[in-house]
Every structure is written in structure tokens, then in C-alpha cells.
Design a protein around this nucleic acid. Structure first.
Lengths: 339, 339
DNA sequence: TACGGATGTGTGAACGTGCACACAGTAGGA
DNA sequence: TCCTACTGTGTGCACGTTCACACATCCGTA
């Protein structure tokens, strides 16, 4: 028969008894304090003999600290499958938290059921803070976090985000403007955009930057609106644009994946890149160097974003005020072959 | 000044006092039992008035159950950036756990520091079980799990895995054999393979299947050995193969990403696909439909693998014996344009 | 009337930890 | 001699929850 509780785990009591000491002394060995060399040695051998592992749940209950930070990915379906950045952001955050001896735990929110359960999890004392990625306007998770006053950091921020919740991101407006200007200065005149995710700050801002760069050249009809940052949307968006204006000679795609899809649609329409049409992307993800031709794009410092968000949390845990409420990281242009 | 503990959180005591009831009754409202309608109503209004949220740490301490299951991704650097399957496996596992009202928490192990901390986390009572992805031979995490007798499920299994730890995977040998046979039956005669990750079971088994399918046709010199399942490795591996035998007319790539890289190298060498060379991949990931031509490949049921691993854990938590120690999921061939 | 069962409620203990406190011994200085 | 400081150890309590048990009330029936 299988046993629900396989073997009783050793506790501080057991260690104390085995070493002929009291619980307090065991605790001091673990957490620092005055302990004689013999006592320490006796307790340490007892611990390794009995295979002692401290009980996090009890520690968290007593200390009100779990040494864990949540990494919440909202609506990750498209994120994990199409957006290569999320992985880098996670790894960046994990590396920074790891250095401070905190455990990063990633939570995935796909359904309403998930939302509720994750909200309970966040408020239940299992984590000391939360990094939230890709929150949408009015997400219930946001409410939970601000109600609880849980230390938090948003990666990108939805338009209606509470003012005093810090966020980390990039200057989407400025970067979009810069890369669009690259198209202009290299002689493109009929420039369109495949805009995506217009319900998120990133999508809205990239469109705004595009518009600002073009000024009077901006033409509303040359903006194709697609739902997601993925390859398929790129193919469809590009076909759409070509239909609206066959004389198009420049395209700003809201992501590298979209740009890759656009390249495909252009190839199928018999246009050469960068000869007939200049294409630029956004993200500098693995897509950028896989494409033929390789993409000129905006480098998004995903790893740094992750580690920066982690720092924001750690500062709050130390009781410091998160200095700049919002933090924007630099995004250099990467010039390759597509424009 | 910032306050370390923002506001005192309401406890069952506070709720009981506010509702004029005892803690026991509050607990019964939460967990079921005999409660009168009035008492229930009073307690429920008190709970929403005070914004009560149960403390998971206390519950976990008392119950010895956290209702959380870890999803441990070992050496995820390449996983998250190159392997599109890991995301689907995660989402599949999360969906299944979600249905059973369990929280999936993903842990990332990149460094030795991570290994130790994750081991502590797993043994500390914050999770009831663990799904382990992509374990390598002799990973310390494996030892921790079997020492603790923590309910576990491996996705794929390293060659030296303890016999009684259940795993979920696919029949890499059989699938590789089947897809290679497709090359043979469509008339290819000089068939090479780009083999990857020969330190993992998946890599070893795919090579074995390839060899078995070819029988006497197998030629040791037509196997290019690359370290990872990624695009860049595909490009390099294909160049290598073409150099070894320019008359090659078929290639089995150990992953779709590798196949995509191979297509690139073939294009650069002026070979047509599938005209001159037939190419087949493995995974049926998003790569497969992005390529030109689209890939004939082996469908890997990533989502099902995840949910199956979750089921294995849930069964163990119910005290059932994990019925089949190892479970292999079917992998249909997907015929597209590349061979 | 008395009894057993169903329904409803309160109380004490325990989960495993860390910390405040109490206590004991030693040493140095006024 | 007394006071203080430092080192080393043991004890009680609290963190917030759940569960077993005790108690209380009501009903139907013997």
C-alpha cells in the first residue's frame, strides 16, 4: 500500500533531542547567535544524520516572509509560444533573485479559474512579492495586488495602472519613432505599419511612435491592425497592406515575429526585401537572425528588464521606497539587412 | 516612511469576533460542516467586510498539504529560447492541475546556486509534488526527490532514473524510425541525420530509431552530431553533411528548429526541397509551418504530455499507485511539403 | 418520560518555527 | 565587593490554521 505521509520528517525538536541540546540552540545554529563549537558540531552531525530540512511553511508562518517571489505571466498562451522575450525576462529575473537567495516561482494565468486561484496564492503568504508580466487593462490581479499592498513590479504597464505601483519597461514610443525614422532617412516614402495588441500599452505606444516619426507623411489607411505579436498575424497584416497600397516601400512591424510573417507575404507577392520594400521589426529576438534577410530591429533588453524588475521587488522587501516609480531601459537600434 | 507590514491582515479570530461566532464555525464555513444559515451569512459578510484571505502558510503547516505542485525546468536556457515545446508542456500541466484546484509553480534551475535553493524549496513543504522536465543524468535534484519520497513525474527520463519514479514521454525510437521510413518509402537512398543532444535520452533514442529504420542502408558517416536542438545547429549540421556527401537526397533532423536551419543551409547550397533533398523534422512545433516549404515532421503532443504528468502527480496525491511506471504518448506523423 | 440521532456551536491542542526573555557562568574594572 | 559586559544555553509563547472532542439544542419515537 502507498503511504500518504511517507516518513515523518525530522524537526528542530528531534535534532535537539538527538544532540542533547535545546530547540533554541538548534535555531541559533541555523540562524546565527552564540553557540559553542562542541554544541554546533553535535547539532550539525545530528542534522545530517536525521536528514533535517527546515519546514518552510512553519518558517513563513512565523516570519511572515517566504523568501519567494512570484513571476506572474498573464495570458501566456501567445507569450510562451510566440514571444521569445518572456523566457529571457524570466531568466533575468531568476538570476537576480537567485543572487539575493530568493526563489522565483512562475505562475501562469490562462483562465478565470486561474485568476482566482493565483490571486489566493499571492495573498496567502507563499510569496513576498510579485513581478507581473503583460497585464491587461482592468485585470483582476492588479486589484488584488494593490488591495494587499503586496510588493510588486510590472513589466510594461497597462494604461490604468495605479500610480504608485512601480514598473519596468522600455520607451516604446521613442524606440518605434527611432526605427521608423530609419526607414525615412533611408529614402522610404510610402511607409505602413502592422500594429498589434492595441489593448496593451506596448501596442498603443509603438503605434504612437510610428505616427510621430512620420508627421505629415502619416497615412491612417496604411496601418493594419492585428490582434497578436505572432507570425501568422504578420502574414495576414502584410497581405492586407499590399492590397491597400501596392506602391508601399516601407513597413514597420510591431514585432520581429510579425516582421518574419511580413517577409513571407512579401516573398509570396514577389517583392524583394530590402530592394522593393524595407522592413523593420521590434524585439531583436531569435526571429531577427533567422529571417532571410536578417531583420533591422529594435533591441529589447529582455534579460535586463527581468533583473531590473527583480531589483525593484528586492528594494521594496528591504523597506526602501522604489526610487523611480517607472523605469525605462535603453533600446539600441540593430541595423541588419532588411532595411 | 514605508511600512514593512502594511496593514494587519484579518484572521479567523477577527472574523469570528466580528460575526459574534467562534473560530471553529468560521473554519466550518470555509471547509464544510454543519453551519446554520444565519451564522453562515454573518460570517460571510464579516469576511468580505474585513477582506479576509486565508493564510496559506498556516494552512500548509497544519494540513501538510499546500495544494501546489512544482514544475521544475532544468537548464532552461536553451529550452525557453529554442524549444517551443516547453511552453506547451507547461500550459498543459497547468490546465490539468488547475482543474484539480492545484497551483502550478514553475521553478527554473540554471546554476548550482539554483539547484541547492530549489532542492530546499521542494523539501520545505511549499509544494506537494514536482514535475521535472529535461533532467540530465546524475542531476542532484533527482536525488533530493527520491530521498524525500516527494510525489514526482519526469518528462522524458534520463538513462539512470530510479526505477520507481514514474515518467511521461514519447516513443522517440519508434517515432524516429517511422519518420525515417517515410523518407525511404518516398524513394530517398542517401539519407543523413542531424543528431542532437546525445547526452539526453531523447537525442540518443532518435538516433537509435534512425539507425533501425535504415538497417543495412545506415552509414555512420552520414550522421552529423550537434550539441543543441536549435536553428544554428541545424545550419552547421547541414553544411557538414553536404560536405561529407554532396549526393545526399534525404535528411532527418532531430528537431524542427534544426530542420529549419537545414533548409537554410540547403537553400544557400542551391539545393531544392523536396526536389533534390527530402527533409523531415521532429516536434511539429510552430517552426514546422513557418518554414518554406512547410515541414513533414513527427507531432509531439506537448500539451498532453504536460497534462499527463500532472495526472500522474494528482494520482499520487490521492494515494494511488502511479499505475504504469512509464507512459508513452502516441506521436502521429504529419505529412507536409518538405518530404 | 426518556432516549438516540441529527444538527449546530465552542474549546483546546497541535503543526514547526523563531524570538524575547530568563538564567548561569566568567572576566574585567571601579 | 559590586556592577557591568559578554558568552552560552534553556523555556514559553506566538504565528493562523484545522481537527477532535465536548457540549447544546431540537426532533421523532419507543
Amino acid at each position: 500500500m502507498s503511504r500518504p505521509q511517507p516518513q515523518k520528517r525530522a524537526t528542530v525538536h528531534d535534532i535537539a533531542a538527538a544532540a542533547g541540546m535545546s530547540r533554541g540552540t538548534v535555531s541559533r545554529v541555523l540562524n546565527g547567535g552564540y553557540v559553542s563549537a562542541e554544541a554546533r558540531a553535535a547539532i550539525e552531525t545530528a542534522m545530517s544524520d536525521l536528514g533535517y530540512v527546515p519546514n518552510n511553511a512553519a518558517r513563513a508562518l512565523k516570519m511572515r516572509r517566504s523568501q519567494a517571489v512570484a513571476f506572474v505571466a498573464l495570458e501566456p498562451h501567445s507569450l510562451f509560444l510566440d514571444d521569445p522575450n518572456i523566457g529571457s525576462i524570466m531568466l533575468g529575473a531568476n538570476a537576480a533573485l537567485s543572487l539575493a537567495d530568493h526563489q522565483m516561482v512562475s505562475l501562469v494565468v490562462e483562465s478565470a479559474r486561474d485568476t482566482e486561484r493565483v490571486a489566493r496564492y499571492l495573498s496567502g503568504g507563499f510569496v513576498d512579492g510579485a513581478i507581473v508580466v503583460s497585464a491587461r487593462t482592468k485585470d483582476p490581479i492588479i486589484r488584488v495586488i494593490s488591495d494587499l499592498a503586496l510588493p510588486a513590479a510590472f513589466v510594461g504597464h497597462p494604461p490604468d495602472l495605479d500610480q504608485n505601483i512601480p514598473f519596468v519597461g522600455i520607451d516604446n514610443v521613442g524606440s518605434a519613432r527611432a526605427i521608423t525614422e530609419h526607414l525615412v532617412t533611408t529614402g522610404r516614402r510610402r511607409i505602413g505599419m502592422i500594429a498589434a495588441a492595441l489593448d496593451r500599452d506596448s501596442g498603443i505606444d509603438r503605434l504612437a511612435g510610428f505616427r510621430a516619426a512620420l508627421g505629415p507623411l502619416f497615412d491612417e489607411t496604411l496601418v493594419a491592425d492585428v490582434p497578436h505579436y505572432d507570425y501568422g498575424s504578420g502574414v495576414k497584416g502584410m497581405r492586407d497592406l499590399l492590397e491597400r497600397d501596392p506602391s508601399l516601400d516601407g513597413v514597420f512591424a510591431a514585432s520581429d515575429a510579425i516582421a518574419a510573417g511580413a517577409l513571407e507575404a512579401l516573398r509570396e507577392a514577389g517583392r524583394s526585401v530590402p530592394g522593393d520594400v524595407g522592413v523593420v521589426g521590434f524585439d531583436d529576438s531569435t526571429w531577427a537572425v533567422r529571417c532571410q534577410p536578417q531583420l533591422t530591429t529594435v533591441h529589447q533588453p529582455a534579460k535586463e528588464i527581468g533583473s531590473c524588475a527583480a531589483q525593484v521587488i528586492l528594494r521594496q522587501l528591504r523597506g526602501e521606497h522604489p526610487d523611480p516609480a517607472g523605469q525605462l531601459l535603453p533600446t539600441p537600434l540593430v541595423l541588419r539587412d532588411s532595411a
